[in-house]
Amino acid sequence: MMTAIFPARSLADRLTTLFWRKPKLLLALMLTPPLLWLGVIYLGSLAALLLQSFYSIDEFSGMVVPEFTLKTYAELLRPQNYDIILRTLLMSAAVTLGCAILAFPIAYYAARFAKGRWKAVFYLGIMLPLWSSYLVKVYAWKLILAKEGIITWATDATHTSGILNAILALPVIGGNSLSTSYIGMFAVFTYVWLPYMILPMQAALERVPTSMLEASQDLGATRAQTFRTVILPLAMPGVIAGSIFTFSLTMGDYIIPQIVGNSANFIGMAVYQLQGTAGNIPLAAAFAVIPILIMLVYLALAKRAGAFDAL
């Protein structure tokens, strides 16, 4: 007759018994390596950043003075630094708006009307640009926007160069060529971050039951009314979720303003230049704290708007 209990035959059996009796032990063993990594390397680095933002730089020797001071933060309020912050925020807001407008038809179509094969086409069609190389995408736009590039060629071929020149002649946002203007920079930013807006928007729209739209039509609403009163409010959490990405990514980017645009400074660029050539790590750190603070506020607002359910 066999017994009701098998003996533990191996170390594996004994360890399994131990994990069974103390499930918290297994949990701790699994969590320790990743938490050590993220806690020490990542949080440690963030702490280092914060710490250095409270240091200052000796104006004569150029050395970092490791003493607590708010002097560095005060420097952020200088007009030229203040301008950088404002410019970055404006660009982030414009890009977010541009992405939302461009993303809507794609997300709406993919969520509501694309079926079967087309669903897969749309899925891959959004996913591949999202994941494909950031730098290559920026590079492609350098080719597109160049004075001798495809846009100039296209406007010449269609005899619309007048329109292009008129746009470039606009004050502030215009410039010598598309690749040295704010318009060009805006186009590249919008292009690069567009998939980040489409995905959460699509996810939010997919959660709108078709029956709800039919009910709205059934009750006599026109297309426009259904759109305004039913679809748009329900898509809103998705838009806010997407805007977290587009806003944050634009705010922290320093590659695009470096390659496209009129070399006006942005937060990301300022951080990069200050820590590199200028060697002013405290000021670079203080600049880097700004996006963190803005994103914390942004995330808190988004959370209140229920955007996290759409992520």
Partner: peptide, 9 residues
């Protein structure tokens, strides 16, 4: 003190 895998059940 017997975990599931050692019970003849």
């Amino acid at each position: 003190a017997t975990p599931p895998h050692l019970r003849n059940v």
